[in-house]
Design a protein around this nucleic acid. Structure first.
Lengths: 129, 129
DNA sequence: CTCTTTTTTGCAACTTTGTTGCAATAATGT
DNA sequence: ACATTATTGCAACAAAGTTGCAAAAAAGAG
């Protein structure tokens, strides 16, 4: 029997925030925007759970910052194993999911591929005057 | 006049470690292996400098861990702006640079590409029984 | 609606990771 | 050997992430 999932105010608030936001958000961004309506630790746990449930995914930027975004393309429940293409604007710092396909990667013999994380750094359209 | 570069025992030790190591190393791994022959802060600064100098590059894993590796393919002095393909073994945790080309990425209108970070997660040849 | 079960939360305490300022030390060119 | 300037160590912080445990809240059953 698998662990059951519950919906709570805090969790809904986080999901709402991620839904509304045009860019992926870090734990710190989410926590601050929540204005201490819930604990710092709770935010960590909610994010962990969202990933467990396959509702969100992590994006690690080059500087080690971790951002979170919802998995819009993904079906419910299924774990989120497919690959992602993310764009990180070096000017505004925004991180967004791009829809482009990720090209197939060629691995050496005996290597087994699980998933691919592709982050493109550059300047986004809004910042590109 | 650009800042001059000096070679110190600590820096050489770090370079040596990265040269010998088959996998990319994190700050913590480097610091511990150095057995307190130098300060924690010094290791941070050496790594920063190696990147500045274009001798090393960062690799951010999905969990936010940052690893460092030397830029073997890169020429001296020139900043390290080209793209990388890294493999992260989910079993042994090792991170290595692969030589494969990174496929061209198609970006939406007005987006400007700076560099690309591609991390492939999976099982490496040694772990793949 | 009430009760029970199990998940989720808050809190406190702690560990790890990364940063900054400053004085002391060491590397390089002359 | 000396002067210049980069590098280091230290101390003190700030930020980020983790754990255990008791209290609170969800969901299902009666």
């Amino acid at each position: 029997m698998t662990k059951q999932v519950r919906n709570t105010a805090a969790k809904s608030a986080v999901i709402e925030m991620l839904t509304v936001s045009k860019t992926a958000l870090s734990h710190a961004e989410i926590y601050h925007q929540l204005q201490s309506t819930c604990d710092r630790v709770t935010v960590y746990r909610i994010l962990d759970r969202l990933i467990e449930e396959g509702a969100a995914h992590r994006i690690a930027l080059t500087d080690g910052t971790v951002k979170y975004a919802l998995c819009e393309q993904c079906g419910e429940g299924q774990h989120h194993l497919h690959s992602h293409l993310h764009f990180n604007c070096l000017q505004c710092g925004g991180v967004s999911c791009l829809e482009s396909e990720i090209p197939k990667v060629q691995l050496p013999r005996k290597f087994k591929l699980h998933d691919v994380s592709l982050v493109v750094n550059g300047i986004c359209a809004s910042c590109n005057v």
